[in-house]
Design a protein around this nucleic acid. Structure first.
Lengths: 174, 174
DNA sequence: CGTAAAATAGTCAATATTGAGTAATCATCT
DNA sequence: AGATGATTACTCAATATTGACTATTTTACG
């Protein structure tokens, strides 16, 4: 929720944009770092507007439906910087949905477990490949850093998984 | 949401428990893998009960308030196994709240950014230390695996962060 | 024994989030 | 020119989640 505000304000720091544009940008470019959906973005922008951190004005291009253009205000910029510092200072909560499944691995035979994890490993490899062949975004250093960070974790997961699958297979044969 | 059901059913697979017990267990032992709060657990258990995957009966010990004891049913066990397989097969979404901050690193001077990240690195090191000196849970192989997985990611993050901080400091001096 | 703190066992109102729309315009093809 | 599908730009009702209680009982201790 805090991160949602940070994300939206950060996007508006680049330049004013209307809602559809913002959501388009997130869906196209930022799906790796957030899963925020459109209605959440609008709701969050409304909240930020109510607190004076963004301004909304409506505009109309041609005779398309009117749209809401959001701009960050001076207090909003201040708030953005405080959210940014807070985010950088304090660590991630680091929770992996897959750890919940791992905890209950004992309910499956080692071979069944290994097969399921192999499927996951393949998907992971594909994601890593997509990631690596994607050209650098070109939105500055920070974005590239975030992408590199993400990729590093994907690769760790790949190696960790491969190791575990090996162990399970061995355990299954013994 | 799916993971929440998996977690609760998995806990009930060990043995029937009442709500307070379940929540106590999660808070005490599982805070690394989930952030589910009590009301969510109760709501989820109610939903599972409505679908016939768990049974609720009330009991009273001494003259403490009556409590609800939840047990997993046969269809619940089936459902648990399907959730487990799904979870193991499909990868994590892998989103790091901190990536959002990283993306906007350019709004800070390299030295400011490095200082903030250093604070984070310290917190990370403490968490790793806590993690490493915690005794193995003793709830079976799966739980140990999940903890190891978590720890591996923490360590990666530590190393990655140290590297980035170094780069930022260098960049600041140049 | 009296009482302050901790443990037990939840509930509820408020907030956050999203799946599934709506409704208009524009592009493309036949 | 009319039909089809994509794009633009949101909105709403339904669901998920949680902070902040409530209310009792047991334990600790001076």
């Amino acid at each position: 929720m805090r991160e949602r505000e940070l994300l939206l304000l950060g996007i508006l720091m680049a330049h004013s944009q209307h809602g559809y544009q913002i959501n388009e940008f997130i869906e196209m470019n930022l799906s790796r770092v957030t899963d925020m959906k459109k209605p959440t973005a609008y709701a969050t922008l409304d909240r930020l507007a109510a607190q004076g951190f963004v301004e909304v004005r409506t505009e109309q291009a041609g005779n398309r439906p009117v749209r809401k253009v959001y701009s960050i205000t001076a207090p909003g910029t201040e708030y953005f910087r405080s959210l940014l510092k807070e985010n950088l200072m304090s660590g991630d909560k680091m929770q992996f949905a897959s750890d919940i499944g791992l905890m209950f691995l004992d309910h499956l035979s080692p071979d069944d477990a290994a097969s399921l994890l192999e499927e996951r490993l393949q998907a992971l490899n594909q994601e890593i490949a997509r990631h690596e062949k994607a050209p650098p975004h070109g939105f500055g250093l920070g974005v590239d850093l975030a992408m590199d960070h993400h990729l590093a974790h994907l690769k760790l997961d790949r190696d960790w998984l491969a190791q575990v699958i090996g162990d399970l297979r061995e355990h299954g044969r013994e």
